[in-house]
Design a protein around this nucleic acid. Structure first.
Lengths: 135, 135
DNA sequence: CGGGATCCCAAGCGATACTG
DNA sequence: CAGTATCGCTTGGGATCCCG
């Protein structure tokens, strides 16, 4: 199931003395930035409602099993809506929920940061690897 | 939210198509939202420059080995600055780099989303678990 | 088509011991 | 104090088979 599901959003707790996180964004990371969730949400966001196979094809390298797992998790968290059409052959469609769309600005800002600073990270890595080897 | 819509033709870092992501924020997630990086960056952000043990104590449950690994990664990516003081006993201090501070607004927005919507997620989970089990 | 069940392996992390 | 090195377990994910 969920990797670290012990975290419960307890509103009563004071500024997080939670076990492994002294920060309030730990739980969000688990929810939104788990292993495959970001590509899934992004694909659903850009291509709208689509079927299981479409997701499978667009998100390369993901296996159906994992795709199902993540999709279930996102559905459970209310970020994705799953619609089952009892036809032959069966048809299932996934889309971002209204609640899931509240992540829009966040993703946009994230994408913007990526566009502006990703190469800086790359430079930092090369610099580190270059003279970091000599220590 | 269509900020990065036009930069889809971004050349991949390595050769070929990007492995696991049809989305431009995949790499950022790896850099910023890896396993322990969020608590580390948050702690460094809120408590300023501090030593290894301080980080170790504040980020509960993290082992020194993993803390070192993540710290090295963050240093390599240019988000964290490591300062070694050749004393006896040795003293090492960590702080967020200038570049790392560019993540500030992002974290703020993330924290805000968490504060507003985390209980919604919890409700969705309970609803899902409640009647999802009977299905 | 859209999965669930099973087996299995590789990565990640914890625990422990040791160094400068 | 601030790590590095090694071992061993836990776990996520791939591969395969099968069902509705």
């Amino acid at each position: 199931m969920t990797v670290a599901d012990e975290r419960k959003g307890r509103p009563a707790a004071a500024a997080g003395t939670d076990p492994e996180l002294a920060c309030p964004i730990g739980p969000v990371v688990d929810i939104v930035f788990s292993r495959w969730t970001t590509p899934i949400l992004w694909t659903l966001h850009t291509h709208g409602r689509q079927r299981f196979v479409e997701l499978e094809r667009r998100i390369t390298r993901i296996t159906p099993k994992v795709l199902t797992q993540r999709l279930r998790q996102l559905e459970r968290d209310g970020l994705v809506v799953r619609t089952y059409h009892p036809e032959v052959p069966p048809r299932v469609e996934y889309e971002i929920s209204e609640f899931g769309r509240s992540l829009g600005p966040l993703f946009a800002q994230l994408a913007e940061w990526a566009a502006q600073n990703l190469d800086t990270v790359e430079e930092a890595r090369q610099a580190y690897d270059g003279q970091g080897a000599g220590h």
